[in-house]
Structure formats: C-alpha cells, structure tokens
C-alpha cells in the first residue's frame, strides 16, 4: 500500500450504475444485519478482483469511502485487490487494524485474531470495526445455532473453516457488550451477518 501511482491500464470496472446498484446491495446488507444468520445473494454485484469474493467486494464498494478506512488481510496487500479498492472506493487503506472501520480477513481463519480490531469505545461503541470474514463456503462446516435480536427463535448456520476456537474467541469479545465487532461472513456470491448482539450456541461444534 505504498505505491503512489495506480496502474489504471489493468483496472477492472466496478459498479456500472453506482446509485442504483449500491442501493440494491445496501438493502441486502440491511436485511442481513437485521436478520442475523439469513443468507443473502449478491450475485448482482460487480465481478471482484482476484482473491476477494463477490460478496466481500460488494460490502466494501457499498460502504467504504474516504471516511471509512479499510484494513486488508496481508494476503491481499500490494495486489490487484488493493488497487481496485483504492481506485473504486477512495478508501484510506490502513495497516493498523484498530484504526479500521472495515476489515477483510481471508487466510488462516483458524488462527484469526478478532481482538486486534477496534472493539469500540464505551461511549461510542459504533466505532468498532466491521469485519468481513471470507470463508470457502457458507455450508458444510460445523453447525452453530444463533439467537438474539433479529432472530425470532433460533437460526442455524454452518460456515466452513470457522472452528470452535474462532467462535469461543468471538463469544469472549462480545460478552463485553457494548464492545465487540460486527461480522459479515462471506463465501462466493453470498453472505450472512452476525452483529455483536448475536449469541452463538456451540453445541455440535
């Protein structure tokens, strides 16, 4: 994230119609965040750069800009993805995860540390980072049961590559509510959300 000049000759397009496309995607994200654990299809979003899922790219394109800094997984830095986000969002890319409004983690999820991100301030818990967790698939992993605001009784999800240690770490973080991080769990064209209020039942993991 040090190169001063963007290579525009190989820049891939993003939204063809930013106003209507970002409105459409925002409403999907709104539904996802207000109904945690429900899967949402973002196949209408632009083709993402290599290394990033369409769903994760859609979240960043829709929400990030010069006022909302972005932290990228080290695996995505210095490549086409970084250039794409810099050009299309104008987002300020940060290396300090605690300074990020949005973050993408996509490698070594088993050892991912959510505590490095901004957990919010007691008086301003909205400053906490929104973390996009890129998984190989939203199905086929260990099933977890969700409850809390936005969920009528319970919801069940089974994202791949997220193990009991990941959920225990998240549970510890969000047990200090109003502190916590809010998650978008993505894979391919789809995502679901887990705000910090969502409680996870680990039975079966």
């Amino acid at each position: 994230m040090t190169s001063a000049i963007l290579d525009l000759s190989r820049m891939k397009p993003a939204f063809a119609d930013p106003t209507s496309e970002s409105q459409f995607i925002f409403r999907k994200l709104l539904d996802a965040m207000s109904q945690p654990g429900t899967l949402h299809d973002l196949s209408a979003a632009p083709t993402p750069p290599p290394g990033v899922s369409r769903a994760a790219a859609a979240v960043i394109l829709t929400l990030s800009d010069q006022d909302a800094s972005l932290w990228l997984d080290p695996a995505l830095r210095g490549g086409e993805a970084e250039t794409w986000f810099r050009f299309h969002c104008g987002a300020s890319l940060v290396t300090d995860p605690a300074a990020a409004a949005f973050a993408v983690i996509c490698h070594d999820l088993a050892s991912a540390d959510l505590r490095i991100f901004n957990q919010g301030d007691a008086k301003y818990p909205d400053c906490a980072t929104t973390v996009i967790v890129e998984t190989p698939a939203l199905e086929g992993g260990a099933a977890i049961t969700l409850s809390g605001p936005g969920i009528q009784s319970t919801a069940t999800v089974a994202p791949a590559a997220l193990d009991a240690a990941f959920w225990r770490q998240r549970a510890e973080i969000v047990s200090k509510f109003q502190f916590g991080v809010d998650l978008f769990i993505t894979a391919g064209d789809r995502l679901f959300a887990m705000p910090r209020t969502t409680r996870v039942n680990l039975q079966g993991v």
């Binding site: 994200l29 709104l30 207000s34 909302a68 409004a101 929104t130 910090r196 209020t197």
Partner: peptide, 12 residues
Amino acid sequence: IRRAILKAIAIP
C-alpha cells in the same frame, strides 16, 4: 448514513 444505520442495528 448507511454505515450509521448498520451500526445502529448492531447496537440496538
């Protein structure tokens, strides 16, 4: 505003 709305939902 959209970012504020999503955070508002995350912290009811």
